[in-house]
Each structure stands twice: as C-alpha cells, then as structure tokens.
Computed example of a mutant assay.
Amino acid sequence: MNDEQVTAWNGPSGHAWVESQPLLDRILEPMAELLLRAVPEGSARRILDVGCGAGATTLAFARRVGAEGSCLGIDISQPMIDAARARAEREGVPARFVIADAQTHAFEPASFDLIVSRFGVMFFDDPVSAFTNLRRAAKNDAELRFVAWRSPADNPFMTTAERAAAPLLPNLPARRPDGPGQFAFGDAARVRNILEQAGWAAIDIQPVDLVCSFPEKDLVRYLTRMGPLGRVLDDADDATRTRIISSIRAAFDPFVHGDEVRFTSASWQVVAHAPR
C-alpha cells in the first residue's frame, strides 16, 4: 500500500474533498455522465467503482442498474467512505462501500461485470499490480472503463493556482511526472503498457475534451482547498494566505465568464476487456 497516498487521503486531501463534495460533483459531472452512458438502465451488472471517493459515481451507477444489479465502491479514504455511506443511507441507494486499497484488496475472483473509475486510478504506487488485481476481480469478458486526466499542459486550468503561487511559495511541492497523482496517466502509451502488462485486452484509449463549469462565487474556495496549493495554504498564516489568494485569483480571470467559471477538461477515456 502507498503510505503517502493513505496519509493524504485520510488527512487533509480526504477532508478537503468531503467538504467540497457538492462543488466537485458539479465540476466533474460531464465525466460521470460519460461513464454512465455505457450502462443501460436496469442492467443486471455487478459494478466495481475504483477510487470512488465520497461515492457520487457509485451511487449514480447503483441507481442506473437498479435492483437487477449491484455496485461496490472502494477507496483508501476513511472520511470519504464515511461520507459515501452516509449519503447512500440518506438517499436510500443500496450501494456498498469498502475502505481498502484496490491494488491489494482480496476481491472475490471473477466477480464483476464492469469496473469503472472517474479519476480514481492514477494514485497507485504499482499500477501494473493494481490492474492485475482488478483483472482477477473481473469476470471473463468483463469491461474496464475509466477516465483519467491527460497531461498538465493539456489542462492549464488544473495548474493555474500553483503556477501563479510559485513566485510566492518557492517550497511548493513539485508534481512527479510518473508518480502517483493527478497526471500520472497523462501519457497514453504508458497507460496502454500498464494495462497490457496487467493482462487486459482490446484496449482503446481516446482523448475526450469536456466543458466543465461552476459558480464564480465558489472559485476561491476551490483554489484554496484542492491540490498542492490547498495543502500548503492550510499551514500559512492569515497575512500570507490573503496575499497569495489575491494574486492567484487574478490568474483565473481568463476562465471567468460573468458569474460562471468555465474550462475545458482534457482526459483519456480508456476501455479494455478481460480476455476469455
């Protein structure tokens, strides 16, 4: 298990995600819809949602398959799974959740018809082992379907805050190109190689560009809570936070259109199959 990721997602990153869940669900809704379209209403499928976070996509899939199917969400984050379970109970959706690392968790062999993920598979410290484990959990002919961010260069909105803050925060942690993290799957050739080594077949990787939006009034909250900058600002004094936030907010002006923030997300839509 990747101790660094466990610490982050059970600490500041996990709590920040839970606190911002309604906003993040709105931002990422186009990607969730992209995944959902592959599943017919009422289909009798057993679905695994990898890196399910606070459960938005798991619940959406559970509603879609209804009583004929089942849906299990897995994540390493206790606060996010707690939020997912509470939401499932509150909304009366029969989805199940487990706190575990999908890279090593002992799934029932050949038990899922479909394995999905909305930006949840880029954080494994050994992605080949992780997708091999998922392959064992998949039935023969099962489908793997996920979306993952392309490169930072393809997603300027996602790196605007840290680029704008860099002159003010020289110790801001640098992203590791191929390490676990948001852009770990930016290279399609690497993704294909990982899946091939893990035993997946009929791999199809397509670029997907989707327009995302959210209210401008939520922009400061977003940029100060999420990503590397959010973690650094948690430890900054009030004067430093105010100066940095003012500088960063101006850098987002190109994405602000009246009372709405809009940007194009650049992702890979990846589909693969478990061979017979």
Rank of each mutant, 00 (worst) to 15 (best):
P40M: 12
I99P: 00
D49R: 14
I81P: 02
E33W: 00
G55V: 04
T57V: 15
A56C: 06
A106V: 12
P109W: 11
D25G: 06
G73D: 09
L59A: 11
I74T: 10
E19H: 04
I47E: 03
R26T: 06
E19A: 13
A62S: 15
E89W: 02
R96K: 07
I74H: 10
A84V: 10
A44S: 15
L48S: 04
M31L: 12
C71P: 12
R85Y: 10
A38H: 15
A95C: 10
I99C: 13
E29R: 13
R37Q: 14
D82S: 07
D82N: 05
T104I: 07
I74K: 00
R96L: 08
L24Y: 08
E29Y: 01
L36W: 02
L72N: 10
R37D: 15
G69C: 08
P40F: 06
V50P: 02
S70W: 01
I76P: 00
E91G: 00
T58N: 05
G42Y: 11
C71T: 15
H105D: 14
M31V: 06
R64I: 10
V65W: 03
G53D: 08
P22A: 05
R90G: 01
L35G: 14
E33T: 01
V39G: 08
G42Q: 13
E89T: 12
R46F: 05
D75E: 03
G55T: 02
H15Y: 11
V18F: 01
Q103P: 00
G42L: 12
E41S: 07
E89F: 01
P79M: 11
D49M: 15
Q78M: 12
V39W: 05
A32L: 02
R46K: 10
L34P: 10
R63M: 04
A56M: 03
P30A: 02
H105G: 06
A86I: 04
V18C: 04
M80A: 05
F107Y: 04
R85T: 15
A56R: 08
R45W: 07
L36A: 07
D75R: 01
G42F: 08
R90V: 07
D25M: 01
W17V: 09
E41F: 04
H15T: 15
E108I: 13
G42R: 07
V93A: 00
E89A: 11
A86W: 05
P79E: 04
G69F: 05
A44D: 11
A95G: 06
Q103W: 01
F107K: 02
R26M: 04
H105R: 01
L23K: 07
F61E: 09
H15I: 08
P22W: 03
P94I: 11
A44I: 05
P79Q: 12
R45E: 09
A44P: 15
I27A: 10
V39D: 10
E91D: 14
R90Q: 13
V98I: 15
A62I: 03
L24S: 12
H15D: 00
V65I: 14
L28N: 10
G73W: 01
A56I: 06
Q21M: 05
T57P: 02
E68P: 05
E68C: 03
D82K: 03
P40V: 03
L34A: 15
A106Q: 09
A83D: 07
R87D: 03
L36N: 06
A38L: 08
A84M: 13
E29V: 00
G66F: 09
G51V: 11
L23H: 12
Q21S: 15
R87C: 03
I81H: 05
I81C: 07
A38N: 08
A102C: 11
E108W: 04
T104G: 04
R64K: 13
E33P: 00
